[in-house]
Simulated assay, not measured.
Amino acid sequence: MRFKDRAVIVTGGSKGIGEGCSRVFCEEGGLVAILARGMKAGQDLARELNEKGPGKAIFVQCDVGQHEQILSAVELVVEQFGRLDCIINNAGVHPPAMSLEETSIEEMEELMRVNFLSTFAGAKYALPHLRKTKGTIINMSSMTAVLGQHHSTAYCSTKGAQVSFTKSLAIELGETGVRVNAILPSNIDTPLMRDWAESLPDPETALKRVSDLQVFKRMGTIEEMGRLALFLATDDSSFLTGQAIEAEGGASLDY
């Protein structure tokens, strides 16, 4: 019950790493707001979490590519729960493998809106409420922010922006007691990962290749990322801010 009666917003909270965060925080007694575009997946997960407890979950339909919807969602969550202790800016997309020349300016603008501007807006709109609780901001970036990825220049750029934002905002908010950290997962078994693999000529080989990159010869799980987010959202990490935690299963070792 490490998050009992405290409130968290998880953007993209119905699937993948966001789902893992929603599950872990609810298992620890949290008040979980699942923000996502897909109504059925969000409502189904909220219903399941409420049946299991001990925490409570609500679903708020939200397209993070529209910052006004993020503001409305934050205000609704605070009205429902009476407080906000953490926001996990997790929602994002990974486009198919494309070279720089194949990527249009319009595609880059849209990717930046969904992957980075949503993080900026989520932190901005949550901040007035987080100041009251001395809460935390957790930005879900990617190991590609520091390692790069073939034919993923646009995606890697948005993930790198999240890391820079995390470090700068941590300085800005240090004296307020609000902590800001980022998680940089490597290869996690998510729908997003499988969608990426399906964009390649041989999906099965691609999934095995990314699994073998970790020293454990497997991908990480969404629950493992959720438990790391929980650590960053509690006093167990009270002296950590501005950090980009590389949750990569040893993938960057023995490069």
Rank of each mutant, 00 (worst) to 15 (best):
K167V: 13
K167A: 10
K167M: 15
S168C: 14
S168P: 01
L169T: 02
L169S: 00
A170M: 05
E172R: 12
E172K: 02
E172W: 05
E175R: 09
E175W: 02
T176R: 06
T176P: 05
T176W: 05
G177A: 09
V178K: 08
R179W: 04
R179C: 03
R179S: 13
R179H: 15
R179L: 10
V180C: 01
N181K: 14
N181H: 13
A182L: 06
I183D: 04
I183L: 14
I183R: 05
L184V: 07
P185H: 03
S186A: 15
N187A: 14
I188D: 11
I188L: 08
D189L: 12
D189K: 12
D189T: 10
T190S: 10
P191W: 14
L192V: 07
M193R: 03
M193K: 02
M193E: 04
M193F: 02
D195H: 04
W196F: 13
W196Y: 07
A197T: 00
A197L: 11
E198Y: 08
E198S: 08
E198M: 14
S199P: 00
S199K: 04
S199T: 14
L200D: 00
L200N: 14
L200K: 15
D202N: 09
D202H: 10
E204D: 05
E204P: 02
A206G: 01
L207A: 10
K208I: 06
K208Y: 02
R209P: 02
V210W: 15
V210I: 15
S211L: 00
S211C: 05
D212V: 09
Q214N: 14
Q214M: 11
Q214F: 03
V215K: 10
V215E: 08
V215Q: 06
F216L: 08
F216C: 04
F216K: 08
K217E: 04
R218P: 00
R218S: 07
G220K: 08
G220H: 10
I222D: 08
I222Y: 07
E223K: 07
E224W: 06
E224Q: 12
E224Y: 03
E224M: 02
M225V: 08
M225H: 08
G226R: 15
R227D: 15
A229N: 10
F231Y: 15
F231I: 14
L232C: 10
L232Q: 06
L232N: 03
A233V: 09
A233W: 12
T234S: 11
T234R: 02
T234L: 10
D236H: 04
D236A: 13
D236N: 06
S237M: 03
S237C: 04
F239N: 08
F239G: 00
L240M: 11
L240C: 09
L240Y: 07
T241I: 01
T241E: 12
T241G: 12
T241F: 02
T241K: 05
G242K: 14
G242A: 15
Q243V: 14
Q243C: 15
